[in-house]
Design a protein around this nucleic acid. Structure first.
Lengths: 206, 206
DNA sequence: AGTTTAATTAAACATTTGTTTAGTTTTAAA
DNA sequence: TTTAAAACTAAACAAATGTTTAATTAAACT
């Protein structure tokens, strides 16, 4: 790993757990095992380092669902199932990055960064919207509020996978329980969300 | 308003918009129009000021739903409707405080504060749980995943009411749109969530 | 080889940080 | 009115902050 990448990884970790202002460049340098000056040498400033972390990680959140829209071999509800699983999966494997982005969203300084971040987070919005819209048009889905239905999917997953301590308390679990690598819980979350969407979306339910 | 309260109000405002580390005591003092030393005089330290803000505002988030559990004149789904509306209402009238609490939850330092905050946020968890449980027992509700159903309600509302910019983009609204004081949108959110819960919870739907 | 460019270092820089001090004004009680 | 406590102020404090400098080492090129 190059020096630049080492710094990016340490910055990702520390920004995620302590926030931007809560993390000093010296901490990042120490964690990465490099000289403090290297941060400004490679990135120019702490703020630009932060933006680089966002860019660096935004790449892995590329559009996932665009090819799903025109896939004729799946029913609409099956597409929703896939969207749910992929969303959970993606959030789990990028939990630190999601932490950073959602925290930044709730802060009011650095408005241009907020804008960039919301774009990244909603990169998959349009294909999902299209799938639900088509599902309604073809009579498989009820005439639901499309945007808010997507918010429910994202909100349910986000709410539980953002704060381990919150998740633990909601579920009534003990200290040792870690939602992020607990397979039964992930399965449970997936099943609940899918079932929820079946009841909500499908017209002819039995 | 006393000096102490003025400081608390300014701290609430600034912590909410810029975060704990992102806000300096001098900014707070300036905003409150008092001398910097007053903060340490009244609160001891910046950290204790933060805890005081949490205490100060936690009072207004008292248990809302405990009397709802044993109310016999309402059906279970009507109780859920009330819970949804009260949750939205409470979040709107304390949006700054919710900002602070959810941000703090996602940070990993100050663990004892995280614990206190999650307790505050979940103060109403038990009565809601009880209502759904009774609804299932009495045959009005299906056998849903109770904890995750609550997470869906909270998650949907939280996801949309946390970041104005995100909300705007999800809904495809212009710059000027502010979800926090847009009545039609609040109504829309309320209706969606209620409808969602009807489909999800009710056994004999038509 | 020598030379230029890049990478890295330790130290210093100027600000800003939270906090404290010592003194002053205001308030309230005796 | 005198006295004591509370409220408030301006200044100073030490520590930490992001950033830059100047010097040194390593790499790459001619």
């Amino acid at each position: 790993m190059t020096t630049k990448e080492t710094i990016l990884e340490s910055a990702l970790k520390l920004f995620s757990s302590k926030g931007f202002e809560g993390t000093s460049v010296r901490e990042i340098a120490a964690d990465a095992g490099v000289n403090v000056a290297m941060i400004n040498y490679y990135f120019g400033s702490k703020e630009k380092l932060f933006e680089s972390v966002v860019e660096y990680r935004a790449l892995v959140l590329k559009g996932l669902f665009s090819d799903l829209v025109n896939n004729p071999s799946l029913s609409y509800i099956e597409k929703i199932d896939i969207i749910i699983d992929k969303t959970i999966e993606r959030k789990l494997s990028n939990s630190k990055f999601h932490h950073i982005m959602h925290r930044e969203l709730s802060l009011e300084h650095r408005p241009q960064l907020r804008d960039a971040i919301s774009d990244i987070l909603l990169k998959n919005m349009d294909p999902v919207k299209q799938i639900i819209k088509n599902g309604i048009k073809d009579g498989e889905f009820r005439e639901v509020d499309i945007e808010l239905t997507i918010s429910t999917i994202l909100g349910t997953i986000h709410y539980l996978l953002t704060s381990d301590i919150m998740c633990r308390k909601i579920l009534g679990k003990k200290e040792g329980f870690n939602p992020f690598n607990n397979k039964p819980f992930i399965k449970r979350l997936s099943e609940h969300t899918k079932q929820l969407m079946r009841s909500h979306l499908l017209k002819n339910k039995k």
